[in-house]
Design a protein around this nucleic acid. Structure first.
Lengths: 153, 153
DNA sequence: ACTTAAATCACCCAAACGAATGAGGAATTC
DNA sequence: GAATTCCTCATTCGTTTGGGTGATTTAAGT
């Protein structure tokens, strides 16, 4: 049922109730008029009744107060790019990527060399090629750029 | 003003209004009693008045309907740690943090120096202190560690 | 068979970097 | 006012890094 329909129906019900109440009161007034101060009691009764009606109407008509609750949910963040295309596009070989990874971990040329079981000269060659392909001059720049390209975590 | 206080005040006002209205009616009934069907009009007036009061009360008392809305917002992911405590704990100064930031962007000592308007010697000093505080030996290590600590983006 | 690309290593040289140390000035704290 | 911290700069010395160049080997593709 729509909100509008329920309002219309309620107004009709309210009018009906008012009419009935007035009739009942008109009929019953002779019974109570003999009592002194009957009018006051009468009015009080009417007031109480219609305050009740009003409250009911008010509650029904009151627009729902919409409270927005912001719920923060933690979501697993996936790697931006597994770097397959970027890698190919830049022409970076797998060996160079290994070197790049070591680089990002802060290894020196000598450490990289020992980790990859090659000479430091080889590492330097790989690095030089990497710099050219990444278009950078320094190892720190290489790490920064590789990270922004998603080549490394 | 709190909700409770306003409710209490409203009840009091309501009672007062009712009392005043009753008094007015009691005083004025002699004027209208001569007219036929005056009571019906009287009751109607009271009914209308108190329906209004009731509606007002109902609107005021109506409890907010809480509607939960799921809102999806994009949140900048990264601040593992706002780094305030970590920073303080490691004793890293703001200037050192600036140097660290430049470092992460792949700047050379000379570039950092010109960006921060100091000599390269000063940069080297800051770096040395940083290395000690981060317990590393090389700039690349420093960047790596600072990142893992959430000190930099 | 020829070409190409990747990986490996070497040598030389210059620039950048890092360690160690000292020191002055400013602000804050005790 | 003494101590502390931070920022600044300097000097020296050894290490690391990067550029340039060239070479060999292997694998893959034409």
């Amino acid at each position: 049922m729509t909100r509008k329909a329920s309002k219309v129906r309620m107004v009709l019900l309210y009018g009906l109730a008012l009419g009935v109440l007035l009739s009942v009161m008109a009929w019953s007034r002779y019974r109570f008029m003999v009592i002194d101060h009957a009018l006051e009691a009468y009015v009080l009764l009417v007031a109480i009744l219609f305050v009740g009606v009003g409250i009911w109407v008010g509650l029904r008509w009151s627009a729902p107060v919409i409270v927005e609750k912001t719920v923060v949910v933690s979501v697993p963040v996936v790697p931006l790019q597994p770097a397959p295309q970027v890698l190919a596009q830049l022409g970076i070989s797998s060996r160079e990527l290994e070197v790049l990874d070591q680089l990002a971990q802060g290894c020196s040329n000598e450490e990289i060399a020992s980790h990859l079981f090659v000479s430091t000269n080889t590492v330097k060659t790989h690095l030089s090629n990497l710099y050219a392909k990444l278009d950078v001059k320094r190892r720190t720049q290489a790490v920064d750029k590789a990270r922004s390209l998603g080549l490394i975590r």
